[in-house]
Nucleic acid binder design. Structure first.
Lengths: 211, 211
DNA sequence: TAGATTGTTAATCGATTAACAATC
DNA sequence: TAGATTGTTAATCGATTAACAATC
């Protein structure tokens, strides 16, 4: 498996391919051509073939792609064949929303614990997941094998928490705090900046009216 | 204000500029050069100047950019000088998280109502925002001036709710459901697909290990 | 005036699309 | 074999970076 130098644009599209293939699979479709998939996904067939060929020849001339096989392969590329243990920092609404989202688990992302600074949340559970005090974060990480930390906390404490996570060996952070985390480059960060997303929608509304 | 044909890449970066300028403003910085900003934001100075010049000459040779002025101007480009009334479909954890997020209000996004299909939520409020039954959606939209609908519901009902929204004249949808909404192109959609974001993080973890 | 820094053009780089030979 | 559709190269398009004249 020697994929290297795959462009960000391609990676960004992979989960969407995965979603469409999953739906095709569920509706019993066995094979699909890049042309047919391109119609459904509203991208060019050329792009689909180019994207997939970054990782190997998954198709067959004259036939197309086997839906099940391609679904599994993209899953492997995305690392969904592996189990990932996750913790969530922040047990507010957003943290709870993430904890309650069962779909993650079916893709191998298992939420093992949550952390919050509010003393009154200590000892509670969300969908069976225990909520600990934030002061226990370091000792918890030392005793448990966690790969991913989701940060669903306000920006004020985010940079410091991120540093703690990194010092405890966490290599992947899913960041919902409205700030950039400048971390060592061996630490993977995926940002979800909701306010920026809302602003982009606002821009679209605004620029559309001008036409 | 004749901005047209602005590339998506530029628009995607605008909210980040806005965030950095807001922080500079709050910390009392009055002027900044593209070079200095480039260091802080980890992008090239060239890109900053190119991006800003899509909208007009906001800077001054030999001086740089006035932080306050630039902040205001980008705010106008993003439509943050206007008020946007918003509703949230789905009063689960995610819907509540959005409703509780006060920052949106300070940027002009006012959540006026929430809707859910669970009868027991009817009549409750979230941060003072009333939760109505989903059956009241159409009549509510006829009687109130709403610009944005956030959809924080599972994918099952999403396409149908989106159609209702559009038929009631909604032109901007902030979509958290894990599905694509194929709507008329005068309807603006901003997607937040959390599971795809998590998969990208997983990809990064996975591909990093291979090196 | 001298120094700094923009606005803008030109050069480079990367990503998308088109085309078609290979092949199932 | 004929038809279909991939894998892959070449052409196009767009976005980023570099360079520098304009100018504050």
């Amino acid at each position: 498996m020697g994929e290297k130098g795959i462009s960000k644009a391609v990676i960004k599209r992979l989960p969407r391919y995965y979603r469409y293939l999953g739906e095709l699979k569920d509706s019993g479709v066995e094979r699909i051509s890049s042309g047919e998939l391109s119609k459904r996904m509203q991208v060019t067939a050329s792009q689909i073939r180019q994207d997939l060929n970054n990782f190997g020849g998954f198709g067959q001339q004259g036939y197309g792609y086997n839906v099940n096989f391609l679904y599994e392969e993209i899953g492997k590329i995305l690392g969904l064949d592996k189990r990932h243990n996750m913790i969530i920092i922040g047990a507010g609404n957003l943290g709870q929303a993430l904890a309650n989202y069962g779909n993650f688990e079916s893709r191998g992302f298992i939420t093992k614990a949550m952390f919050d600074q509010k003393k009154e949340l200590r000892g509670t559970t969300v969908r069976g997941i225990p909520v600990y005090d934030i002061s226990q974060l370091e000792s918890y990480l030392k005793e448990n094998d966690i790969q991913i930390a989701a940060m669903a906390i306000p920006k004020a404490g985010a940079v410091q928490v991120a540093q703690t996570l990194v010092s405890c060996g966490i290599k992947a952070i899913w960041n919902f705090a409205h700030t950039d985390l400048n971390l060592p480059k061996d630490v993977m960060v995926e940002n979800v900046h909701l306010s920026e997303s809302l602003m982009r929608l606002s821009y679209k509304i605004n620029s559309c009216k001008l036409k």
